[in-house]
Design a protein around this nucleic acid. Sequence first.
DNA 1: CTGTTAGCGCTTTCAT
DNA 2: ATGAAAGCGCTAACAG
Lengths: 341, 341
Amino acid sequence: MTTIDDVARDAGVSKSTVSNVFSKKRPISKEVSNRVLESARKLEYKPNYWARSLVSKETKIIGLSMQGENTKFGSFHLSLINGVHQTCYKTGYRLLINSVSNEYLNQVENQTSDPVDGEIILDPLVKDRRIEESVKKNRPVVVIGRPPKAYEARVSYVNNDNAGIARDVTRYLIGLGHRRILFLNATENSTVWEDRKLGYQAAHEEAGIPMDDKLVLANDRSSSALLYGLEQTARHLTQDSSITAVIADSDKTALGVYQAAGSRGCRIPEDLSVFAFSDDSSYSPEFQPPLSGVRMNSEALGEEAAKLLLEHCSGQSRSAKRVLIGAELVHRNSCGQASIR
Amino acid sequence: MTTIDDVARDAGVSKSTVSNVFSKKRPISKEVSNRVLESARKLEYKPNYWARSLVSKETKIIGLSMQGENTKFGSFHLSLINGVHQTCYKTGYRLLINSVSNEYLNQVENQTSDPVDGEIILDPLVKDRRIEESVKKNRPVVVIGRPPKAYEARVSYVNNDNAGIARDVTRYLIGLGHRRILFLNATENSTVWEDRKLGYQAAHEEAGIPMDDKLVLANDRSSSALLYGLEQTARHLTQDSSITAVIADSDKTALGVYQAAGSRGCRIPEDLSVFAFSDDSSYSPEFQPPLSGVRMNSEALGEEAAKLLLEHCSGQSRSAKRVLIGAELVHRNSCGQASIR
DNA sequence: CTGTTAGCGCTTTCAT
DNA sequence: ATGAAAGCGCTAACAG
């Protein structure tokens, strides 16, 4: 491996001159500059990333932090990543998928600081260690979704209006005559769970319909999203014949709802209406009829998050900002008038 | 920021002792070890990633290199990334999306070595600088897809049997009576383009049907995959009424084929059969009828690639290996008997 | 404009 | 089993 010393020797100049030819941080005569560049090319020299980072205190890498153990990216995350990457790409930042198993991380010998200038945090929890740590270390951070209340004013974030969306969806279903709507809400302890519940609640209140807390569930992640939808729907439909609609937190969950309905001869939308917080697989033939859902515009979510983070990394902005990304309800054929079963 | 010196001072030991408590590279008495760990916890010390990498010469980061400028991940890449990530996750490696615009990279002041221990290369070209460089620098590398001929024996790679798949698809269409099959093949100058053409050719030969080179196209990436399918199909269908089937290189391209067919009143599969190298969006309602395609198992592709790469990074294996991932044709309703138009 | 000299925070000989 | 000292490759402060 060629080092800066090799180049300096070859070009007959000092290390700092070589350094400055590359960094352009102080003027170097055309003549010397060319000589150095020539040597560098000849020796195939490239400044060492880590040595440079060590002293400059920046890595030009931003991290993407997934929530929980062993998580996989879904189609929602895919466009989100594309959005983030898009922004990184132009600005010379690299994107690190920053998630390593706790099993590995918990070994002392694997402990290290993170090799990133800042971090984008996915799927924030009501109490989220990742956010707490970033703030404590004073490291730039942007949350996708709403941060915990205590951090809302201190941390930048990009979000959909989840409460508003949930209210609109619920209002729509109530408008169709549904009175008891099962809500297969998001992951336990996530802030999005809270927000969506608020919206669900608001729609009930404005319609003067009593809301049953027991109808608002949480995904404990003990099994797959599909099973969450399948099992909970089956259980509640059996126990409670007054339920005429289900709101599902993702397309996979909605698929579980479809299966549960199907296996008990319950027709969609005649007997049961279904709405999902997703617009990714809604078209899939597994969904018969096509699933009504919400388009969240996740690519924009990612793009804006990256922009905010880079502003913070470059020190352009120290203040916590908030960006709201619009979302639209997409109506297909999975919802209908409530009917008594 | 807490450094190793702070901890050493606090625990009343030397730097090297602290270092070895963490790295476990030499025995430290239980007593001292505990004292150090206690100080470290108190001071919230974590070894600095960059400083460590600088001397250890490894970063525990692997890169994922996309082909070309400004590329976006598609659904094919999503499961591929999940596969790669899955493997990284367990082993403590992090995954870097290693693509920054040339515009940025070409500035001298942005030149650096790459901050990775090894790289996974996506969508290899017949002449691919990324591979050449990795080999020259003697850096661990695994290609997803087939490397250029000159590197096939020197570089590990994970691949589908693209020639075989293309042969099977073509054979199937020929079996349905198709004689002139338009092949909207992969990206110009990519190795997968070559391999698929070989398979297409083989099927023609074994059936004793003359193959028309002009029917095998390449995506020059000047526009989107959809437009590639749309424009080329429209053009060829107009010029040449003997074409009764199209093989498309991706689902987006196939969608273009559908649109071109639709706009000229050409029915699928009655007037035109369509097959795609993809099983991602085949179900989408935009595809009426559902698209027949190839399931490439890209998650396995990613997983195996990462495993191979980590073997190389850890020095367990220096020999170039090859892994083939199976693929299956998935028949739906976009293909039928050839008919004269 | 350029060279010299200190470090950045860590690991790794070489001692003891 | 522990400490002292010498770097890893680079940038930056200080001289000139």
